[in-house]
Design a protein around this nucleic acid. Structure first.
Length: 467
DNA sequence: AACCTCACG
DNA sequence: ACGTACGTGAGGTTC
């Protein structure tokens, strides 16, 4: 079977009680692999057959056959099934949360108007800025992208003590976000659903790195923290006599970094199952492991994540609360200690400049035309993308392979969600123990890195109480 | 449609 | 002078 959007066609087939074809070739996915930022290969007005001919050749030429035939096409039917299955949501629970948030917001609105001495649209950053910075005379801290005065939480945090309205705004923002983005829409979807389950669409060609994304509703960014956040997750429930099983890869991106960079120190740390951030701290601060303080560990953790994102000293200084000079020293020290990482980055950038693209270990590509830009800003942006893609992209391959492998061995286990480094299953209680052990094994064994892959398992009777 | 903000990994 | 970490989707306001 050859065509576009085969996920939709396969769903229709299943719904009609027909058998899925054993093999299929999705033209959209092929085009996306060839250029994940643009999908330029579909721009021509060719027939599916003609496109198929061109794309099969192009996939081969670009070294993308493995990713296409062994990862993306097998994944297509897994996604099809996940979307069809959906996830049960407790509408009653959401309605209760909705009522509580409505009440909280009503109180906050009154308090904010009184404190500001004026009524205005709190949801309008423009009007909010006028109140805070013109009417109340507070000095603005951050700037927006286009030079405006920022009212984002991070900026407001800095002026929390300056005027009593600020903390009220922050609370209002938090609650309004939860209500408008999650509680209300999810509630409405649950009520409209005939079987009490809601269904997302997984976008297989939605990202530049190879990750999946999720839309209508996006189930990959459901709140995790806070009282209400936990309760929102609590409204996601397994079918009767089932439990949720959540398995998440522990530090998969750092393990991928250790592998692709071939950094001996980092590899050793993971092979010995050591606390990577603590090891990093001991190295960067030049102290013994026992002398690492929580502050040092925190800075090291920020540094480790920063490296994955291609962070510079400015950004590190900001997020770690250090001076620019200190931040620069720490980064230098980091690359000194983990010289494999530095070497890998430099080689990667050099190759990207020469070829115009980067690729991960499986040959997944991302084209970066701006890597050669004369604008230092655009070039720097492209360099960060270059550093991140092989890491994020291999981690994405690994979880995709895990999805396929688990469903191949246990086709009847309900895979519910895939959230970048975590899979959520809905498993009959009677089978929970065996499935849990086996899924962990499969996920840890699905791809060989230079370091072990580690997966943490947790179960629960709602998504909120998984432990 | 652009902008701002904010939820997630 | 300025911006200032990677990848997403969605809700609101404003133009």
């Amino acid at each position: 079977m050859i065509g576009f959007d085969l996920k939709e066609k396969l769903k229709e087939l299943t719904l009609a009680g027909k058998k899925m074809p054993a093999e299929y070739f999705d033209l959209g996915v092929a085009a996306w692999l060839l250029d994940p930022d643009k999908k330029q290969y579909l721009d021509q007005s060719l027939s599916p057959q003609e496109l198929y001919k061109i794309l099969t050749v192009k996939l081969k030429e670009n070294g993308l056959e493995k990713v296409f035939y062994e990862i993306e096409m097998p994944l297509l039917r897994v996604l099809t099934e996940m979307e069809s299955r959906g996830i049960a949501v407790d509408a009653g629970q959401l309605k209760k949360i909705k009522k509580e948030l409505d009440k909280e917001l009503e109180v906050l609105v009154v308090a904010i108007y009184k404190s500001a001495g004026k009524e205005f649209n709190i949801n309008s950053p423009k009007q909010l800025g006028e109140i805070l910075f013109d009417v109340l005379g507070i000095k603005p801290r951050g700037k927006t992208k286009t030079g405006g005065r920022s009212t984002k939480a991070e900026s407001l945090e800095e002026i929390k003590e300056v005027h009593p309205v600020v903390p009220l705004i922050l609370k209002y923002r938090e609650f309004f976000k939860l209500l408008s983005t999650y509680v209300s829409p999810l509630h409405d979807l649950a009520v409209a659903s005939k079987d009490g389950r809601i269904r997302t669409t997984f976008l297989q060609t939605g990202t530049a790195t190879g990750r999946l994304s999720s839309e209508n509703p996006n189930l990959q960014n459901i709140p995790t923290g806070g009282g209400y956040g936990k309760r929102i997750r609590g409204a996601f429930i397994p079918a009767p006599k089932h439990s949720f099983l959540s398995v998440d890869y522990s530090q998969i991106e750092l393990r991928v970094l250790a592998t692709v960079a071939g950094d001996s120190k980092m590899i050793e740390a993971f092979q010995n199952d050591q606390d990577i951030h603590k090891i990093t701290a001991a190295n960067v601060f030049n102290v013994a492991l026992e002398e690492v303080t929580p502050e040092m560990r925190y800075a090291a953790k920020t540094l480790n994540f920063g490296v994955i994102y291609g962070m510079g000293p400015q950004a590190f200084a900001r997020s770690a609360g250090l001076s620019f000079e200190r931040a620069r020293q720490f980064i230098d020290e980091y690359f000194n200690d983990f010289s494999g990482v530095k070497l890998w980055q430099d080689k990667l950038i050099e190759k990207a400049k020469q070829t115009g693209y980067v690729e991960n270990l499986n040959g997944r590509k991302r084209w970066l035309p701006y890597i050669a830009s004369y604008s230092e800003r655009y070039a720097a942006e492209a360099r960060r993308m270059a550093i991140n893609m092989p890491i994020q992209g291999l981690a994405a391959d690994i979880i995709k392979l895990a999805m396929v492998a688990v469903k191949k061995e246990m086709p009847d286990i309900g895979l519910i969600l895939s959230i970048h480094d975590e899979l959520v299953f809905e498993v009959p209680d009677a089978m929970l123990k065996e499935v849990l052990a086996r899924v962990k094994e499969i996920m840890e064994g699905v791809y060989k890195l230079s370091v072990p892959l580690k997966a943490d398992v947790a179960t629960g009777k709602s998504w909120g109480e998984i432990s």
